[in-house]
Design a protein around this nucleic acid. Structure first.
Lengths: 343, 343
DNA sequence: CTGTTAGCGCATTCAT
DNA sequence: ATGAATGCGCTAACAG
């Protein structure tokens, strides 16, 4: 009746029955064996081995009123190599804190993001690292998607991008200064007409990078032709935009690309342009974010880079500090420095 | 005493107390409201809203003896863009099955892989998709890391690579035929001395690709100089190996690179070589796996590609079919086709 | 040293 | 239509 071989996972009781002891003795043995005779421990361990018993962690956590040991990571697109590295950074820190990560992708869709956060909350994840899809978080659709006290709260740390309502911890990049520094390099190289390629409407990062870009132009007393602003977000559209700008009457001599996706598109367009053999020199490119192999293309390239892995690690550390109560009630923001390098 | 505002998550009982009903009525209301007066439902819902109550999924699953709704994904290195896309494929299918994924990276370390699988099993994950680090799985160190019946079993589907003991389901790539087809292109282009860059000692993929490579040479009646075999696995070593081969007395006129990491290294070395202005033409490269921007380098390139996202999706489907008992007891292996394209 | 009791948060079963 | 008892797998607290 009890010792029957079912094909569901064995429990403490199955082990206890087989070893001829009480469930508690099994529990104690699994916990290290304090106050259990070695001889009995051996019997228990034999039974454990035989049945392939592994304690049910969820039940364990429930009883001990302990959290799940899981944190959520929600990014917009895992296919973007940037977020793979980012997730790795989160994972490494999480592992150091004895946690594992649940990954979800929003695909940039705020609705999907909301559902993802809701699932995370329902699964009792301890917190979430979120690369927000849009500009605002529908806090009300996820009761508790806030780091602040209150029951059922799901601590959130934003990463890479921020959102309108600024009540969250955030691990960002020094977008403004980084972009300004990269733009300064283009200016020092003599470029005066510079096209800006980036999703101004969509993300806070593009806006901040645009801000740094404009600031650098202003500091240099250079005017910006708004016609050189291309609000695009994906690779194909970026390529088209660059191509269009190069083909116009007064083409830019350089471009500023606001992220790695637009950079790939810009590089494609510039390479094509070069192959078509136009007389003016090859346009230069300043890219926010690094792209593998970009330095080999023979295009004058300036990269404003940071390590996405570090960013993920920083975000994770912020989350754990908050979970451990080592952070004050007010939201904290850190900004990773950006380094500029030219090829 | 009971209704006090604690800062831990509210439970059914807190809601029940606030609404002046029994926990069961709350439970029923949350479950859809069958057999609960609408008026009472409203009271309950108000209390739920006020407290920010969300049912504890773990407790729910425990009571209903339902699985966790989580599957594990263990890859060797999330920083490799290949695995980001792969994970995305898994995630999409998992979402369609109402599951979420727990991500872990082994870093290619079998010990870490074992610990990862053990943690997955302890967390009661329903199954695992594993890109194995080494050649064999220490099945005994993870009692139940097998798809076969028996208590505590953790169903495993291997992906990309397989291991020595072949008792697992696996979603692989048609490495042998793909590699042969790519090699055939090099041969058709007139290349006879071809260097092979790939981690023969480490992964089954490199071995299978080497097998296809050799097969194509043999079919063409071309001998292979074992001196052109470079057993390297990372980007830097691949670059060094290519450079070394190019500098030797009888340099190869083309290279076969067994994965995207070695391809990046090979491309770097070839570009450098070209810049150094050697008289012989630019060496050609056949790359297993696609690499972004590689086609723009002006290097004769042949790519043997497949979609890692599809591979992840295929692996996930295999896992769910097994979980649902829709697969026979014997392990199944699928191989994704490889398409060959030249630039 | 070991077993019994009780309860984590939830929902099924059986009362009423 | 509602509540009480019971148990999922596990372990603290208290027996003995």
């Amino acid at each position: 009746m009890s010792g029957t071989t079912t094909n569901s996972a064995p429990t403490v009781r199955d082990v206890a029955a087989l070893a001829g002891v009480s469930p508690m003795t099994v529990s104690r043995t699994m916990a290290g064996g304090r106050n259990v005779r070695p001889e009995v421990q051996d019997r228990v361990r034999a039974a454990v081995e035989k049945l392939g018993y592994r304690p049910n962690q969820s039940a364990r956590n429930t009883r001990l009123r302990k959290p799940t040991g899981l944190i959520g990571v929600a990014v917009t697109n895992l296919a973007n190599p940037y977020y793979g590295q980012f997730a790795l950074g989160v994972e490494e820190v999480a592992a150091a804190y004895g946690r594992q990560i649940v990954m979800g992708t929003s695909g940039g869709d705020p609705g999907k993001e909301d559902r993802l956060l809701a699932e995370f909350a329902d699964r009792q994840l301890e917190g979430v690292i979120l690369v927000p899809a849009g500009r605002d978080l529908a806090a009300q659709s996820v009761p508790g998607a806030r780091a602040l006290p209150g029951a059922g709260a799901l601590p959130v740390v934003l990463a890479t991008r921020t959102v309108g309502n600024t009540e969250y911890d955030a691990a960002l990049v020094d977008d403004v200064n980084g972009a300004a520094a990269g733009t300064a390099v283009l200016l020092a190289q003599g470029h005066r007409r510079i096209g800006f390629i980036g999703d101004l409407a969509g993300t806070s990062t593009a806006q901040r990078r645009y801000e740094g870009f404009r600031q650098a132009l202003e500091d240099a007393g250079t005017a910006f032709d708004e016609g050189l602003l291309a609000a695009v977000r994906d690779t194909a559209l970026a390529a088209a935009a660059v191509h269009r700008q190069l083909a116009c009457r007064q083409p830019p001599t350089a471009f500023f690309s606001a992220n790695n996706r637009t950079t790939v598109g810009a590089l494609r367009a510039i390479c094509e342009w070069r192959t078509e053999g136009h007389d003016a020199g090859v346009p230069a490119l300043a890219s926010f974010d690094d792209v593998e192999l970009a330095d080999l293309l023979g295009i004058p390239l300036t990269v404003m880079s940071h390590d996405p892995r570090r960013l993920g690690a920083a975000a994770a550390r912020m989350l754990f500090e908050r979970l451990e109560g080592k952070a004050g009630p007010e939201p904290r923001v850190v900004q990773l420095p950006v380094s500029v390098h030219s090829y």
